[in-house]
Amino acid sequence: MTNKMQSITRGLVSFAILIAAWQALVWGTGVEFFILPGPWLVLHSLIANLELVGRHAAITLLEIVLGLLCGCGLGMVNAISLSWFPKVRRWLLPLLVVAQAIPVFALAPVLVLWLGYGLASKVMMASLIIFFPVTTAFLDGLRRTEPGWLDLARTMTAGQAGSGRWAALRHIRIPAALPALASGLRVAAAVAPIGAVVGEWVGSSAGLGYLMLHANGRMQIDLLFAALFVLAAMAVTIFFSIDWLLRRLLPWQPDSLPNE
């Protein structure tokens, strides 16, 4: 069996064990279905409400994707400008460190107040929590360029009009920082759904977070779990797609852990 098949099999087996444990818990404790519905009930509810769950899932997915694009884009631009302008770095970096300590979730009510119940406040929420890890990871990478590469670049561009620093950034500093950026992007992929759902909880009229609150209020616990299941599946899919893409794009980055 190939490595890929082995890891898929392992994933399926773990999933099956998890479902079995869930069912065993329901049978073993005799817990009421409105506290913890069994997997069969949740699946049934998912199929019965497929159209409803799908509609809300599409909105949450849109919020996550837009949040990822905005947050990662802004974080990358910010990291590059911080590395390029020492003055900006001196003023902005301490500010960023302090801002990072503010719990972004606490801003959710304010964002909803300012940006309304629609898409914008959720995208903003997701962008905000993505922005910091992407900025710090990428900036860290940009600061750790092998000095020998830069020396070499300097001898190659010596006597050229002005372009040396830009060329070194574009051809050496940025590519060299991509593995560090990739770590930031993985974190971003993992936290983006949190941002979107928290935004939905605070105030919204659509999305999986909204659907979960709504179902909870009406004691539709099976629907709540169905929405939760879809959200988890979405988050895992987003994370592994980005992880896969980053591995494909950075084949030169050695993985020093033994093959898993």
Partner: peptide, 17 residues
């Protein structure tokens, strides 16, 4: 002299990507 020098280091300094 600027711009007429090529430099080779003890390390190969090849860019891994």
């Amino acid at each position: 002299i600027e711009g007429r020098i090529a430099y080779m280091d003890q390390r190969d300094l090849l860019l891994p990507w």
